[in-house]
């Protein structure tokens, strides 16, 4: 049985945005803090720290998860994707990110990295979502700027344009 003692920093090896990464974490360290403080991922936005606001959502093994409700040590051997994985190497935004810009789907941008990760995985699973389905998915995120209208439109437009490209 693997036993990681309290108060001791243990190495955690995992894949971060497609590349091997390593950091040190006490068992009690949350993945959100680990990514920000150990690995410098400033794109992880920490809001409520109890799983309600959705700002810190990342993909773990391709599935959306709250990084504040995941222990860093739990991600050993797993893959973690943050919003940095969406844009191209040269910084060109993804189609979803472009749609967010076009529809003014963000203002302060604090909730955006989490929403983009949820939406990206949601669109991989559902090629032709209804507005209702998009809104239900978004119920796991809190945005206090936009009123969600632009976010819903951006996601639906991306779904349509991806369907057209297939």
């Amino acid at each position: 049985m693997l036993e990681l003692k309290e108060g001791v920093r243990h190495p955690v090896d995992f894949i971060l945005n497609g590349k091997p990464a390593r950091g040190l974490a006490e068992p009690r360290m949350l993945l959100s803090d680990f990514l920000r403080q150990e690995l410098g991922c400033a794109e992880i936005h920490v809001g409520c720290e109890h799983g309600v606001c959705g700002a810190c959502t990342v993909l773990i093994d391709g599935i959306p998860a709250r990084s504040c409700l995941t222990l860093a040590v739990q991600t050993a051997g797993r893959t973690v994707e943050t919003v940095r994985s969406l844009a191209a190497e040269d910084g060109a935004l993804s189609d979803l990110q472009e749609a967010f810009r076009r529809h003014h789907a963000l203002q302060c941008g604090y909730c955006t990295p989490g929403i983009l990760m949820s939406a990206e995985q949601f669109l991989r699973e559902r090629a032709d979502p209804s507005e209702q389905e998009v809104r239900e998915m978004l119920s796991g995120h809190i945005c206090r700027c936009t009123g969600y209208v632009g976010i819903v439109e951006a996601i639906l437009e991306t779904a349509r344009s991806r369907a057209g490209a297939r």
Binding site: L2, L4, E6, R28, E49
Partner: peptide, 21 residues
């Protein structure tokens, strides 16, 4: 908003989990 320190155990099977408990 951080948990207090604890030891993390990852058992290889349910019997190890039951023994630890």
């Amino acid at each position: 908003m951080k948990p207090k320190p604890f030891t993390y155990l990852r058992p290889a099977d349910i019997n190890e989990a039951l023994q630890a408990l």
